[in-house]
Design a protein around this nucleic acid. Sequence first.
DNA 1: ATATTTTTTTAGACTAGCCTAAATTTAACC
DNA 2: GGTTAAATTTAGGCTAGTCTAAAAAAATAT
Lengths: 222, 222
Amino acid sequence: MEISFTEENYLKAIFSLSRLYGDAEVSTNQISEHLNNKAASVTDMLKRLAEKKFIDYKPYKGVRLTEKGRKTAVKVVRKHRLWEVFLVEKLKFKWDEVHDIAEQLEHINSDELIEKLDLFLGRPKHDPHGDPIPDANGKFYAQKSIALAEAKVKQVLVVTGVSDHSTQFLQYLSQSGIGLGDHLKVDEVNSYDHSLKVKVNKNHGLFLSHKVALNILVEVKS
Amino acid sequence: MEISFTEENYLKAIFSLSRLYGDAEVSTNQISEHLNNKAASVTDMLKRLAEKKFIDYKPYKGVRLTEKGRKTAVKVVRKHRLWEVFLVEKLKFKWDEVHDIAEQLEHINSDELIEKLDLFLGRPKHDPHGDPIPDANGKFYAQKSIALAEAKVKQVLVVTGVSDHSTQFLQYLSQSGIGLGDHLKVDEVNSYDHSLKVKVNKNHGLFLSHKVALNILVEVKS
DNA sequence: ATATTTTTTTAGACTAGCCTAAATTTAACC
DNA sequence: GGTTAAATTTAGGCTAGTCTAAAAAAATAT
């Protein structure tokens, strides 16, 4: 049951690389590049992780997480993202300042702490970057959020967050009647300045600049 | 500038042992007992810490923190106590459940994080055990509480902490209805065994042994 | 299908931190 | 002051995790 920070980082790397490349086997070189260390070090660690049943490893053939490995990796991801929410929502960090700190906090080991933190934060579904937060059982219910500016015309969208947390921006949003969980639809895109005409809940005709659209995070529902 | 978790733990141990015994040199055996490892391991580490100028170390003569070492140790103490406040005040942990988690969190390395956490918590002066929290410059401003056993009959007292942090003791206290911030008054002292009859908040007649009274810290209010 | 390049693994070495066992220094006692 | 006991340090060894250099396997190219 004892797992080191380093082992957790390897599992997290394997998890995210395997997602990135469509759940295929992950190669030694990919891992070594991702973790900024040498392939020989990776081989060493893969043998240890295989020994502990976190991965399936056949020499020269790449690796794949076992169910045990996946659970462990997802738990680290969950902790990382919850701490990011904490840092941004409660401590008022900017969303681009939190990664390195969350990288440390994700290794704190206490199930009760995660549970109480999750509760304290209101069981958020997305981190400040729009990435979905898995639940305590390792299930991802939410999709990755994208900036409103990247959404396609006619897609059904739900507001999941913002990337600019300034009072100014947040006040502008609430004045415009846009809040967390609201439904959006892009009706038109101005091809010159990329500004949008959107429907908010039932009301058509709201105009949003490209700059604003870049700072609203949405989940694509259809 | 790189300091490991282990090194931080040694510095913290040396700091707290030196305080405990009136700022005298701390011996190898004291440290090894405090950290639950062997004296030979301690000697190894002392050499490394001396090399890095965290301590003054003369073989066979015990150690003393340098200014650099003291600053580092106090910073760890500050982090530990701030995180304890967070865990109890915000996440609603019991005050006897937080030590082990804070023991991990105290090693998270980010000055900005400490600052923002301190602000978020309202710059608390005491942790949930009543121990004073040093400021960012390493100064302890909060006054020292006295043991309940030292208080005089009829003084109005407020519980600020404990000197025994064992789960056993803390559970005994909460069973007795004594918690942080509670008001106490000593009604009688048994001159034979120094046991006390005290008033807790509005309820008279609680019996406390001398041993327990030695481990409860109080602030004298009048 | 053979030669070359790329990827991966093995072999051997290093550091941090820990250990046990033995040697040494300091303290304590008669 | 000399002998014993206690505290401390040295010596040598272990593991986790890293590295470099070299060997081996797989992929690629001719």
